[in-house]
Write a protein that binds this DNA or RNA. Structure first.
Lengths: 230, 230
DNA sequence: GGGGATTCTCAGGAAACTCACAGACAGGAT
DNA sequence: ATCCTGTCTGTGAGTTTCCTGAGAATCCCC
């Protein structure tokens, strides 16, 4: 999972599939990632790779997230940390924040949301001048203002519609399968069926793709793709 | 936390999350910031970056805020300093002020208030002609006169309403989450529910947004945004 | 100490959103 | 042309989020 000059994010979680989802999601968003499956590996990875940010699961056997964070801070390391915590317990929050974590997400979360937080946090610490305006033809997404316009007209989108469009536009020109979209836009433990993606693609078409040129394309038998055909 | 030509503020606090909150708050207000987590780093940062102002925590291990200030003044450095002191102890107050601090804030404070003091102090020292009139459409905030008008009519706001509107208008066009607003407008140790933000948004709507065009927008699932839609 | 302004909690109703389902529709193969 | 498979979209039930009014607690000025 490496590119060349994008910010590097360390992802620490003992659950293989969650780590995979998160790393894939960050990869699609243009980040380099390194993974670690326990606390000890995490500390070693920080020392070796000097990541710009750490996504850290709170619950891990042996050295848990809190221990890792404490050791980092005690050693003078100030790398921003986003915690992944099991449920919305106020206790976790206080504990995490007072120990110097900068943000936290409650499991299960939508990967697209975690990616947004990572981007925000990196922007705040000035590491990555994040691109705030995503475009495809006359479709524009301003992620700062959380605003979408098509041919200059503002379009109102629901949260899910917005996240879906964001994933599509950040991967403009690439075909994304229903499963990929489901994995990134919906909470990862979503157990409904992937036809919900069709429903939301339909909503998006009505709201942002009712004028020419059509930007949302169906790739029969594969998935969907946002692109501007010349 | 750097941009290019805004005034630079050095933030010194050994508590990571407080430093982060303060730096973020100053960043949102358009300042560049540099952080330091102890007295020695602070002195080094002053020498290296020559900040326009220093936000200095009084209580730190080893070299505390008073020591830092004394060393600076003894060395002829006149950079304005705003002290952060643990509680409203008369002793701290006297000690800080007589030794050359220009202002002080008692922890826990509201970040928006600290930002206001920083702006005031910089304006006094003529370093930065800080913008004193904030506007959005026909809504105006004169931070000098502490006065708000909508369509020419003066509006009376309570302190909290004022701070909230100030944060919104200085970030006009950008979406702010309930958490961000809570972190900047309310004292940072506020442990109530973030629905208080909704209540105050409602108050503001009644007082300053009862006429068209509507400027305060709800971004469902995200937060609020002040902007003038054409 | 009294009274008004302010802060904050809470809860009901309104509005928006999510998601399943099912029938209509389209593309490709035979 | 016809069938089959995959895709599109309208409907509606259930859920979540938001808005606002009412009231308790607190602060502050007189």
């Amino acid at each position: 999972m490496s590119d060349s000059s994008s910010p590097l994010v360390l992802v620490v979680d003992d659950e293989e599939n969650i780590r995979f989802l998160v790393e894939t999601g960050l990869g699609l968003a243009g980040f380099d990632t390194v993974g670690a499956s326990d606390g000890r590996q995490a500390l070693a990875a920080v020392a070796e790779h000097r990541p710009q940010l750490i996504v850290l699961d709170a619950m891990m056997p042996e050295l848990d997230g809190f221990d890792v964070l404490r050791r980092l801070r005690d050693g003078g390391d100030k790398t921003p940390v986003i915690f992944l915590t099991a449920r919305d317990s106020t206790e976790d929050r206080v504990k995490g924040l007072t120990e110097g974590a900068d943000d936290y997400m409650v499991k299960p979360f939508a990967v697209a949301e975690l990616v947004a937080r990572v981007e925000l946090r990196l922007k705040q610490s000035g590491v990555a001048r994040q691109q705030t305006l995503l475009t495809c033809a006359d479709l524009e997404m301003d992620t700062d203002a959380h605003r979408v316009t098509r041919a200059g007209d503002t379009v109102e989108l629901s949260p899910t519609e917005y996240k879906l469009l964001e994933v599509l536009i950040s991967n403009a020109g690439r075909v994304l399968t229903r499963t990929q979209l489901l994995d990134h836009v919906w909470e990862y433990d979503f157990d409904g069926d992937s036809s919900i993606v069709d429903t939301y693609i339909s909503y998006l078409r009505k709201k942002v793709d009712s004028v020419d040129p059509k930007l949302i394309h169906t790739i029969r038998g594969v998935g969907f793709c946002l692109r501007h055909d010349a």
